[in-house]
Computed example of a mutant assay.
Amino acid sequence: MLVLLAFIILFHITSAALLFIATIDNAWWVGEEFFADVWRVCVNNTNCTEIGANFQDYSTMQAVQATMILSTILCCIAFLIFLLQLFRLKQGERFVLTSIIQLMSCLCVMIAASIYTDRREDLHKNNPGWYSLTLEGSYGYSFILAWVAFAFTFISGLMYLILRKRK
């Protein structure tokens, strides 16, 4: 049982690390001379432009930013609640609250990555000078990590749902 518990804790920490990297790192859309994420676009590694109110589809990017941040926060909260429930729950009870919060984190990261996938071309097309970048690039590792984090948080949420506290 101790090995299973260590695996679950390690799996949850890995999920949180993936969410942090995907949210912070600047590699959602990359090309030869540029890279972009949900916060800024950098050309030639020197000319970085923050995505702000002057951005055409700023509300869409805000939705992606907010849901990625929310998924990271929910994942961390789920871990803290898991640790509290680990010592407070009676034997045989399930970690339902932890599972619900982790599945909400999973839903948030899925929404963020889905919005970015759907609106990526429109996000850059409506902003002068950025449309040519969208044609030359490809999805970066942070974007892929966001989808991997989705799978990890989903599996983690299901593990908590079926996990019973045993001796």
Rank of each mutant, 00 (worst) to 15 (best):
E32G: 15
E33N: 14
E33S: 14
F35K: 13
D37R: 00
W39F: 12
V41Q: 03
V41T: 06
C42Y: 06
C42A: 09
C42D: 03
N44D: 15
N44A: 11
N44L: 14
N45I: 07
T46H: 02
C48S: 07
T49V: 08
T49A: 06
I51A: 00
G52W: 00
A53Q: 08
N54S: 14
F55W: 15
Q56C: 02
T60D: 04
A63S: 14
T67Q: 11
T67V: 04
T67C: 12
I69R: 03
L70A: 15
S71V: 01
I73H: 01
I73P: 05
L74H: 07
I77W: 07
I77R: 09
I77L: 15
F79V: 11
F79P: 13
L80W: 01
I81G: 02
F87L: 06
Q91G: 01
Q91I: 15
G92L: 04
F95K: 02
V96K: 11
V96L: 13
L97Q: 13
L97H: 07
T98K: 01
S99A: 13
S99Q: 02
I100T: 11
I100P: 00
I101E: 00
Q102S: 04
L103T: 03
M104L: 15
S105E: 03
C106Y: 06
V109T: 13
V109M: 02
M110F: 15
M110A: 13
M110K: 01
I111W: 08
D118E: 14
E121Q: 11
E121P: 01
E121G: 01
L123C: 12
L123Q: 09
W130Y: 11
W130I: 00
Y131H: 11
Y131N: 06
S132N: 06
S132C: 01
L133D: 01
L135Q: 14
L135D: 06
G137Q: 11
Y139D: 12
Y141L: 12
F143E: 08
L145H: 08
W147L: 15
V148P: 04
A149D: 06
F150Y: 13
F152I: 12
F154V: 03
G157C: 05
M159P: 00
M159Y: 07
Y160R: 05
Y160P: 06
